[in-house]
Simulated scan of single mutants.
Amino acid sequence: MIMMAKKHPEKPKNQLATNRKARHDYAISDTYEAGMMLTGTEIKSVRAGKINLKDGYAQIRQGELWLENVHISPYDAGNQFNHDPLRRRKLLLHKHELAKLSGVVKDKGITIVPLKVYLKHGFAKVLIGVATGKHEYDKRETIKRREQDREMRRVIKNNF
C-alpha cells in the first residue's frame, strides 16, 4: 500500500488573504462585508495576493470606517504611482451597518478586526468581525477543545 502525504486544503480562488491570528486572539461575535477604497496600484497588488492582515484593525472616525495597519506591498511595475504600504484605507458600509458598529464599539474591550480579503464581482471586499479579546486561559481552552475534537474524529475514522 502506498502512503501519500496529506494535501492541505486549498483556499478558494477569490480569497486573497486571511487573518488566522484573529480567530485565535479574539472571540468574533458578528461579521460584516465591506468594500475597500483602493488606488490603481493597490488593487493590482491585492489581486496578486500581496496583502497582510496580521496586525490590522478598523476604527470609526468622523462617521466613517477606516482600515488601519494593513500592509499592501507596493506594485512591482507601479514606479512613481505606488502607494504607502501602511496607509489608512476607507471601508464602505451601508449607513445602518455603520451606525450599528459605532454603537457596539463604544463598549470597552470591543474592536473591529479584518478576517479575510477576497474578490467579489471584480471588487476587493474585506470581511470584518466585531471582536472581544480572549484571555490566555481562553486561548488554552480553545486549543484543548480543538485537539479533543481532532482526536475524536481520528478514533471515529479508524473504527468505521
Rank of each mutant, 00 (worst) to 15 (best):
residue 7 K to Q: 15
residue 8 H to P: 05
residue 8 H to M: 13
residue 8 H to I: 14
residue 9 P to A: 02
residue 9 P to I: 07
residue 10 E to L: 04
residue 12 P to A: 13
residue 12 P to M: 04
residue 13 K to F: 00
residue 14 N to E: 15
residue 16 L to P: 09
residue 16 L to Q: 05
residue 18 T to C: 02
residue 19 N to C: 02
residue 20 R to A: 08
residue 20 R to Y: 09
residue 20 R to H: 09
residue 20 R to S: 11
residue 21 K to D: 10
residue 21 K to A: 10
residue 22 A to F: 06
residue 23 R to H: 08
residue 24 H to L: 12
residue 25 D to Y: 10
residue 25 D to W: 05
residue 27 A to K: 07
residue 29 S to A: 05
residue 30 D to C: 06
residue 31 T to F: 04
residue 33 E to D: 07
residue 35 G to L: 15
residue 35 G to S: 10
residue 35 G to I: 00
residue 36 M to C: 14
residue 39 T to E: 07
residue 40 G to I: 01
residue 43 I to A: 11
residue 45 S to E: 14
residue 49 G to S: 10
residue 50 K to V: 01
residue 51 I to H: 04
residue 52 N to H: 04
residue 53 L to E: 00
residue 54 K to I: 12
residue 56 G to C: 07
residue 62 Q to H: 10
residue 62 Q to F: 09
residue 63 G to W: 00
residue 65 L to G: 09
residue 65 L to M: 14
residue 66 W to P: 10
residue 66 W to M: 12
residue 67 L to W: 12
residue 68 E to Y: 05
residue 69 N to T: 13
residue 71 H to G: 00
residue 72 I to Q: 10
residue 72 I to K: 07
residue 72 I to A: 11
residue 72 I to E: 08
residue 74 P to N: 10
residue 74 P to Q: 15
residue 76 D to R: 08
residue 77 A to L: 06
residue 77 A to N: 14
residue 80 Q to A: 02
residue 80 Q to R: 02
residue 80 Q to L: 03
residue 81 F to P: 04
residue 81 F to N: 15
residue 82 N to G: 03
residue 84 D to C: 06
residue 84 D to V: 15
residue 87 R to I: 08
residue 89 R to H: 14
residue 95 K to L: 04
